[in-house]
């Protein structure tokens, strides 16, 4: 699908450090895009450039093929990691104000606020001051403020922080629903399980550079290590010309769990054939690396030698 947003060779430098260095991305329309990276990698800098809070030193951002400009503000919604609302303002007025700043008319905004407050079953909060709400309630209000103007591109920075599991689930469903209605979502988070669950594409940024991107399935395939998990009864020999048992755990009643890595050119059926001849197989499946594992591996790989040593010494 045509990308809703493209970043081309974006560079951003501050006084003492380079935050982004030649970052290029394509975000397909109608997808959930995971923007990953360790703290300080440059994610927030990239988001601030996309939301036009700051500008890039070099390179450019295109929104639907057009160079990003203030007219796009109405089509972008942003939930920053640092949440905040005017504490002494009433919920309804606050939502109205923020929506109108995003270019909505008073009438449209009022109608949509009503609709969203009903949807979240928090209609009775409209007249309350924000400071009288609990933190979770404030987060809900802030989420509504982000999506109220029906943006085509929604940027969510750690959207689940501050929510209990029930409300986190509610927000997750809303995000998926927004995607189904055609919105594109950029999703920046450290919670890898939600990335795996929700994202269609991801990009990994480390030390101001993009180190990995693409559809989540393709990336997983890339990082496969030709390793299989076997569960069964009996005893596996540890050394074999075709494969290597990376890990083996004994369980009660002669059961075992093992991870087996195949050597190059060996196919899973070869392993299965061998297994059938020697043990009773209960389960056999490919070990697909989790995004978390890929994340850690990639971050380590792209670390300079000296830092890697320190990191290893610490671990």
């Amino acid at each position: 699908m045509k990308p809703i947003l493209e970043a081309i060779g974006v560079r951003k430098a501050y006084a003492n450090h380079v935050a982004l260095d030649g970052v290029s991305l394509e975000i397909p329309e109608g997808s959930i895009f995971g923007l990953l990276g360790p703290n300080g990698a440059g994610k927030t800098s990239l988001i601030r450039i996309i939301t036009q809070i700051t500008g890039a030193d070099e390179g450019e951002i295109r929104f639907r093929g057009e160079r990003l400009n203030p007219s796009h503000i109405a089509q972008i919604g942003y939930l920053p990691e640092e949440r905040g609302l005017y504490k002494k303002m009433k919920v309804g007025e606050q939502l109205l104000y923020l929506a109108r700043l995003r270019g909505l008319s008073r009438e449209d905004a009022t109608a949509r606020i009503k609709q969203w407050l009903n949807r979240f079953e928090i209609k009775e909060w409209a007249g309350k001051n924000v400071e009288d709400l609990s933190k979770g309630m404030q987060q809900k209000v802030q989420f509504i403020a982000t999506v109220l103007h029906d943006p085509k591109l929604i940027i969510l920075d750690e959207p689940f922080s501050g929510f209990d599991p029930i409300n986190a689930n509610l927000i997750k469903d809303e995000i998926l629903e927004l995607r189904n209605q055609g919105a594109t979502i950029i999703f920046s988070t450290h919670r890898m399980e939600s990335v795996e669950e929700m994202c269609d594409n991801i990009a990994l940024i480390n030390r101001s550079r993009k180190v990995l991107d693409g559809p989540i399935g393709v990336i997983r395939d890339q990082f496969k290590t030709n390793t299989y998990e076997v569960e069964g009864t009996g005893k596996l020999i540890l050394a074999h010309p075709d494969f290597e048992v990376v890990e083996q755990k004994e369980r009660e009643n002669g059961h075992f769990y093992a991870r087996v890595q195949l050597h190059d050119g060996v196919r899973p059926n070869d392993l299965l054939r061998y297994l059938i001849g020697t043990v009773e197989v209960d389960a056999f499946r490919e070990k697909i690396p989790s995004i978390n594992e890929i994340f850690i591996r990639r971050v380590r790989e792209t670390m300079p030698e000296t830092l890697l040593e320190t990191a290893n010494a610490l671990l």
Binding site: Q52, I73, I76, R83, G84, L85, K87, L98, L101
Partner: peptide, 17 residues
Amino acid sequence: GEEKSSRIMEVMLSSVK
């Protein structure tokens, strides 16, 4: 100062200059 400490700046700045 209040806007800064209530952390609403980023939301505002994504809408206005």
